[in-house]
Every structure is written in C-alpha cells, then in structure tokens.
C-alpha cells in the first residue's frame, strides 16, 4: 500500500469508476481469491489502485480484449474471482462472443467492469460511447447486470457482485457526480426509491438518475408528485417492485443513457406486456442512433434526455 491511494468513500463528488476502484481495494484485503485483469486501461478504470496494493494478483493482457475474457475464464475455472476492466465498447462489446461461450455458458464467476459507458463519455465520440452494452449483457443467460448511479452505489455493487456465483457485468461512467440519498440501503436485485410520488414514476439507472431527480423536483414546483426509482440491477430485474410501481403510478417512464432497444426500457416493457398491464408508458433513451463528440450536456440535449424534455413527455402522458 502506498500513500497515493485515494480516500475512502463516501465522498461528496465521485465517479462510479472511483467507487469500483475503492471496492476492489477492499476486496483485495478481504478475499484472497479476488484477482484483477486489465487490458491497458488500468488507470482509466481505476484498477491501478488494486495493482499498486496487490501487484501479485494483478494481470495485464495489453490491448487484447478477447484474451482478457478468456484468461479470466481460465482463472475462474481454477477458483479465482477475476474482475476484468476495460471500456464498455471493448469489453463486453468487442469480446461478446468470448463472454458468451467461455464465461456464460459454463457459468463462471467472471466480473466484467465496462467503463466509459454511454453518452456521458462525451468528446471521445460515437466509437467510444457504449450504448448497446446492457442489451448485449442482458440477453446472456446466467449474467447479472448492474448500472450504479453514483460512486457509493458502485462501491456497494462491486462488493456484492464479488459474491455472485456466476458472471456479472458492472457498467460505470467517467464523470464525477453527487452522492444520491436513497430511501433504502443497496441490495442487489432490489430497486431503491429516491423520491416517493405516484403522479408519474421515473425508473432510471446510472448517470441519468440524477436527471430523473432534477425532473421530479422541477415538476413538483408545478404541483406534480413524481416518484423516482433507481433500477440499478437490470438483470435480474426487480419484477415485484416494477409490478407494484405499475399499479400505483398514473404514468411510468424509463430513462437511461443507452439505446431504447434492449435496455431498462425494454426490460420494463417485457414485464408490462407479460402481465397485460394497461398503463401509459414511455421509454426514454437514445433512439436507435449512434452518438458523436460533444459534452455530455450537449449530447443529452440533442437526444431529448434533459429535464425540460423529460418533463414535457410526462405532462403529455398525463393528459392522455
């Protein structure tokens, strides 16, 4: 351990990747089977903190994401709990076939960390803005998918995922965000309420949960009680909670920094359709397009993922 290690969470402003880095340090201390593998992005994914503290249990494959997944599968076959870290466009997107065959089919406990996800990645542009990763991971049997909203939740999620006996995907982002106050403690597979309200309920995850909160607060000034629920675990989805929300809310919308195809919106739509629920429902996200360079704010503006536009969608749905 050296004195360059970061302070312990929670802090007021933290990125989800910072939360992962902190949690891996904790896991390194408490679980000797935890190992970390990087594909030349140790610093950007914050796993370099683990590397400094536990160099013997850190492995570097270089720019080789397929081998990253395969090596991790072999480590897991020998009883290790490997965390593999890269950007989401590389892992799990570029190496999806390896994850499917070598990790998910044999149900190996490989922990995938996909960083720099979504439009939040900003100036790097479309090539680096993973907007399909949740769809890719959600469709794989045995896979658990989590998208934490802040650094503290990323920390808790990372600790929890280490104990899951099968493969997991943790989606994290680059920007620092405020720590959000939740009504319930973090529990894998269970939604967390941020704001209670039944006129409309926004289901969100990851970086845009804060936007959902801002929208609810904006609409409350107009007399609307809008609830906000954090669906950090996209798979397995907290189906009882979704069903309950659909029973009490007048309108349900989902909000995410991901394609509208295959993300949280699709997952909730699957629940609604399977149960023949009749409820005004809309999926907000990126509508079957790629991103581009720009600040996250500019990109969210273009794709209609801002407070004003979300509030307008809710008002229109309530009028129907």
């Amino acid at each position: 351990m050296n004195n360059q290690l970061p302070p312990k969470p929670p802090v007021d402003l933290q990125s989800t990747r910072d939360g992962v880095g902190q949690a891996l340090l904790e896991l390194g201390r408490t679980n000797p089977n935890v190992v970390v593998v990087s594909a030349d992005l140790a610093s950007s994914t914050r796993v370099d903190w683990f590397k400094q503290a536990f160099p013997d249990r850190f492995f570097e494959v270089g720019v080789a994401e397929q081998h990253l997944a395969g090596l991790a599968a072999g480590l897991a076959m020998a009883g290790k709990i490997p965390f593999i870290a890269s950007f989401a466009v590389f892992s799990p997107s570029l190496n999806w076939g390896v994850i499917r065959t070598s990790i998910c089919l044999p149900n190996l406990p490989v922990k995938i960390i996909g960083g720099h996800a979504g439009l939040a990645t900003g100036p790097d542009g479309a090539t680096h803005q993973a907007l399909e990763d949740i769809a890719l991971m959600r469709s794989l049997p045995h896979m658990t998918v989590v998208s934490p909203a802040d650094g503290a939740e990323a920390y808790q999620a990372t600790l929890s995922l280490a104990s899951v006996p099968g493969p997991t995907y943790l989606r994290v982002t680059k920007p620092k965000t405020p720590i959000i106050k939740f009504q319930q403690p973090f529990e894998l597979g269970k939604t967390r309420t941020v704001i209670y309200g039944n006129d409309a309920i926004i289901l969100a995850h990851g970086y845009l949960l804060q936007t959902a909160i801002d929208t609810a607060q904006s609409l409350s000034k107009q007399g609307l009680k809008v609830g906000v629920v954090n669906c950090h675990t996209l798979k397995p989805l907290d189906q009882p909670s979704i069903l309950q929300i659909c029973q009490v809310a007048k309108v349900v919308i989902t909000l995410e920094d991901h394609q509208v195809i295959g993300g949280l919106g699709s997952a909730v739509a699957e629940v609604i359709s399977q149960h023949q629920l009749k409820i005004p429902f809309q999926i907000l996200g990126v509508k079957d397009q790629f991103g581009e360079s720009g600040t996250p704010a500019e990109l969210y503006q273009k794709h209609g993922l801002t407070v004003d536009k979300i509030a307008a969608v809710i008002r229109v749905l309530l009028l129907k």
Binding site: G70, L71, A73, G74, M77, G79, T101, S102
Partner: peptide
C-alpha cells in the same frame, strides 16, 4: 478461445 483458458488456468 481455448488457449486463453489455458493461460488463465496456468496463471492461477
């Protein structure tokens, strides 16, 4: 994919 698995086992 198999040689990567072998690398992982050997590394462990």
């Amino acid at each position: 994919q198999g040689l990567s698995l072998g690398c992982g086992l050997t590394t462990a």
